[in-house]
Design a protein around this nucleic acid. Sequence first.
DNA 1: CGCGAAGGTGAGAACGTTCTCACAGCGAAT
DNA 2: ATTCGCTGTGAGAACGTTCTCACCTTCGCG
Lengths: 323, 323
Amino acid sequence: MSRALTGSGPVSAENKRRVIEAARRLDYHPNTLAGALKSRRRNTWGLLSFWYFTPTLSDHYYTKVLGGILDAAARVEHRVLLLNVVGRFDRSEECRRFCHESQLAGLAILAPRSTESAIEVLRRQRIPTVLLAYRPRAPELSFVDLDNVQASRLVVEHLLSQGHRRVAFFGGEYKLSANARDRHDGYVTALEQAGVQVDPRLVHQQDFTSGFAIEAFHKVWALPRAARPTAIFCATDRMALAVGDAARVRGLHVPRDLALAGIDDEPAASSAQLTTVRYPFAEMGLQAGEMLGKLADAPEAGPLRVLLPPQLIVRESTSLKIG
Amino acid sequence: MSRALTGSGPVSAENKRRVIEAARRLDYHPNTLAGALKSRRRNTWGLLSFWYFTPTLSDHYYTKVLGGILDAAARVEHRVLLLNVVGRFDRSEECRRFCHESQLAGLAILAPRSTESAIEVLRRQRIPTVLLAYRPRAPELSFVDLDNVQASRLVVEHLLSQGHRRVAFFGGEYKLSANARDRHDGYVTALEQAGVQVDPRLVHQQDFTSGFAIEAFHKVWALPRAARPTAIFCATDRMALAVGDAARVRGLHVPRDLALAGIDDEPAASSAQLTTVRYPFAEMGLQAGEMLGKLADAPEAGPLRVLLPPQLIVRESTSLKIG
DNA sequence: CGCGAAGGTGAGAACGTTCTCACAGCGAAT
DNA sequence: ATTCGCTGTGAGAACGTTCTCACCTTCGCG
């Protein structure tokens, strides 16, 4: 009898003991399929991920986020089911089938630049959904995102506190991603708040490649000596590392001649002693899981939104004060 | 009627069309829970992973293997369910519950140094099981492993072909892992086959840390000039990179004064131009998935065993021939 | 002493599929 | 004309749980 094992109704202590004893003797394990079918209680979360990340950071990113979700799932005795979307083209139909057929209790979407069309389709499902690292246009969707504006601000404020006034910024174009915009915004805001005027000659925006970063570095270094930056802040570590290499080739010493900072806290940033910002990826996964739990318990609680603060990691590349 | 949608019995073309049409109109999607319950056909694979890897390589390792399994799963319309085992202590009971309750069609275990006790428990389940990157003691278990002996042989044979005769080996102790033994075995075999005698002064085995590698390097460099190695082969890239740094500190040039090679093909190995060996992690996941499929179709086919060959990546650290 | 509330129990419907079976039609072979 | 096999069809059991309900006991209280 199920009451004895699940505790869903009144049972005498004596009978309960006997049922449990018998269950163990027969090596009985309840069939979750049947249970879920009848009770309409689902214990599986889906993680939908669009699998076309940039190579370097993505593995770390993915495993940490995944680890966070798995943690949250384990706490509430849930399982995590995976769906990978590999191509760049529209797979919304596939996603839809995944959700429908897998009978999910909740869905987390790890979707850098996730296509709004796919999200639109998923939104119609009755399944609690949380978007990760993405702020959707639709206001009724829940998400947990990383505070990219804050990330840039932390870096720039740190550079300012070190005495730098001429801080260059290399990043991506606005249309590239929300990231690109946010990281630039944080840079501008931090400077303005400190009363430092933004010098447009020090701002270069195109993409997040090392190649562009090196190009931009040569441009700002071609400026008259007085106009050159004393610090360069790149929107990604990869860019900053490339700039570091290019600067050393020119005979410059980091940080004596030029301070350098990035964002992402890649493994390489640590060995290169690069000041950077670390995002709480595992925390993001964890929060997503907790949100799914809350959303399942009380869908009327409305969209949940969390913006996670990043953490400044100060290393040698910005460690010396300038005179 | 289910026949029209699943094609499990004879249906007239006309009725089939009508049923499908109606299904679409009503936005009907079959409930997999009910289906699986009745048909006893399971479409979920479990991936059990023991989550205490070394930091650097593991993310890449894990995502690649996972990607491979997801690929294989997608091909046969299966899903992948995750279970993480975080602690180092015995969680066999938890694993058992996971398998029993999740109603898996198959189980893949990603278990570096996986405890035989946990495997023993899982073996009693009736679920097809494949071990990844681990050769279990029990002969009736299926596995897909990486050929670590071959990895070492490839490296050493390459070094020999470059003219090196005094090749040092730094690795882990035998009792540390099967890896440690295999990588040393490949080294010895390759040398012996080439008729080169193994100089015990050039072989240092303790663990896979950078610290130990540097220590070992100083030891071999303290030998009389004629006894020193012309090439050092480390059982991991991390060790090789550390040795490279230590050598440069001593004013040595790699590869002119000392050739260097590792195993793993870490991201850092690429930027440091380190010759190394790359393992087909994604292929390992893929093969595991295919095995699970075969095992489910024909359990009597007996244990399946695959040993995947690694790939030698030649880079600058071994590129110059010595005179 | 009667009566309601609460604790305990078992039977059986329900969840949404797949599977089995009986049976109807119909052409081909006996 | 009867039998055989085949395609097509619908009814209903089955999968292994949870849930509901009716009922039975026991106790406290008026």
